[in-house]
């Protein structure tokens, strides 16, 4: 079985802040990591490979330094890494990204399954997976929480819904996005790390994948950022002052009124 896992390098979101004075992202000391949901997708792919045989290819679109994320993927069990990288991709929204990835996947040839994390923690859009499925015209399921079996070109799985789950069956090739509940990702192994160190990622440029320049990057995006800003919250607040006992007294009075 040939499995492709889409991974994304993201800043560790909990550390990112917008400096309200300069309106810039304070990224100092912010580490780049593999999108946590993608780790689960990768783990699911590696488990499938261990069960049914085959190969796992990690693919990422990003600047050259995103190769680091492909190394992580190989250290955790992927067989190879593909870096889709070109200055022409800059400014891509999810629409242009799914186009670019679709062209790259087509370039890689036949596959059975594409796995994605349910969303990336920097954008939280959850759109590239479904967009990619549509562009490749393959069946797709979001929020897989369990893969039951995968035989004779048919995959059975459970899809997490807001109020329970659905048992699903679909023919391959297909794409699915996974939620955290699907597994507990492994840490990289020593042998994996060594393999990762030697790994040479296949680099694909816009020309390599035969992309239409009008569909790439900012040019190919259907959405544009009008402005980026620090969220403003305002409330008419009333500070309760005094000793701790006095503060608690006032709180109790307010609670009495409210409840």
């Amino acid at each position: 079985m040939k499995i492709i896992v889409c991974v994304k390098q993201v800043p560790d979101a909990k550390d990112v802040r917008l400096d309200p004075k300069t309106n810039t992202l304070a990224r100092e000391g912010v580490e780049s990591i593999m999108n946590p949901f993608d780790r689960h997708a990768l783990e699911a792919a590696v488990v499938l490979k261990e069960q049914y045989g085959g190969t796992v290819t990690a693919i990422t679109m990003g600047p050259p330094q995103a190769e680091e994320t492909l190394r992580d993927a190989v250290a955790c069990g992927a067989d190879e890494g593909v870096l889709v990288s070109d200055r022409a991709f800059a400014g891509a929204d999810t629409w242009a990204t799914s186009y670019t990835l679709a062209k790259a996947v087509e370039k890689l040839g036949e596959f059975d399954l594409i796995l994605c994390g349910k969303q990336a923690i920097d954008g939280d859009t959850a759109q590239v997976g479904p967009g990619l499925a549509q562009r490749l015209d393959i069946p797709y399921v979001a929020y897989a929480r369990k893969i039951t079996e995968c035989v004779d070109g048919v995959i059975r799985l459970e899809r997490l819904m807001d109020d329970g789950y659905d048992e699903i069956e679909m023919g391959m090739p297909a794409l699915m996005t996974v939620v955290k509940e699907i597994n507990e990702p492994r840490v990289p192994s020593l042998k994996g790390k060594m393999k990762a160190k030697k790994m040479q990622a296949t680099v694909l440029t816009a020309a390599d994948i035969g992309a239409d320049p009008e569909c790439l990057g900012l040019q190919g995006s259907t959405t544009q950022v009008v402005k980026v800003f620090s969220p403003q919250f305002s409330a008419e607040r009333c500070m309760l002052t005094g000793t701790v006992d006095e503060q608690v007294d006032q709180l109790l009075v307010k609670l009495e009124e409210l409840l």
């Binding site: 840490v187 060594m194 160190k197």
Partner: peptide, 18 residues
């Protein structure tokens, strides 16, 4: 050595995450 640093990294990650 690079290999030794990898051992440290792998063990450190297991320690932190598991």
């Amino acid at each position: 050595s690079e290999e030794q640093q990898m051992i440290v990294d792998v063990a450190r990650q297991i320690t932190a995450e598991k």
